[in-house]
Amino acid sequence: MDAVFSNFDDYLKAFGLTIGLFVVAGIASLVWGTILAVLRVGPISILNKAAALYVTLFRNTPLLMIFIFMAIAMPVLGYNFKFVEDVEIGGYNVSAFFFRSCIALTLYTSAFVCEAMRSGVNAVPLGQAEAGRAIGLTFAQSMQLVVLPQAARAIIPPMTSVLIALIKNTSVAAAFGMAEAVATMKALTNNNADQRTGIFLAFAVGYIIIVEVVALASYAVERKVRVAR
């Protein structure tokens, strides 16, 4: 454990990066996954099929392969996303590595978000959407005002699982230039072979804390949604 405490700065930075990847990829996945879910249940046949194809493609591809594609194949093809490094947000520059990692995580996770959303939407009786349309709501309005608020309760448990999986999946970025928790753990164990177990426990605890925070937040939201019904 000494190695962790004497490098506590690195430890915090590592989990900071893990959380950063989680938050950015998580928000992007929720947005993109929701759009996909709406396309999947929407009235336009070609978009249904396109969204279904997307889900099939990215849900069935190992995350590692998506990372290899984004981080290794794309740069070889000439797309290295270096342009994002010119963008400054609040004094910070986003690195192309962070950006590519977030894209890889989002491409993958959004497929699962879409399916979690869809299962929630399917849990809402069809008559609710019909009643919404019958009073003249557009498809988008009936999704937004009628279906999704009711789907929320059914969506939250599977969505929580998707987000927790995302937290752990950020560790794949360790092998693609991100000094997040797992990469830092490897560096510490490599340099401190005698403290392997302690270092491992310290990083496991870090993950447990993040996952528990997300799980508790989801229980809180679930309770709130339940009261609203």
Binding site: P75, V76, N80, F176, G177, M178
Partner: peptide, 17 residues
């Protein structure tokens, strides 16, 4: 920038990443 293997790392240098 850590990678899993040296060959991936070499690819990154070759592609200018």
């Amino acid at each position: 920038r850590g990678f899993d293997t040296y060959s991936e790392c070499v690819d990154q240098v070759l592609s200018g990443t």
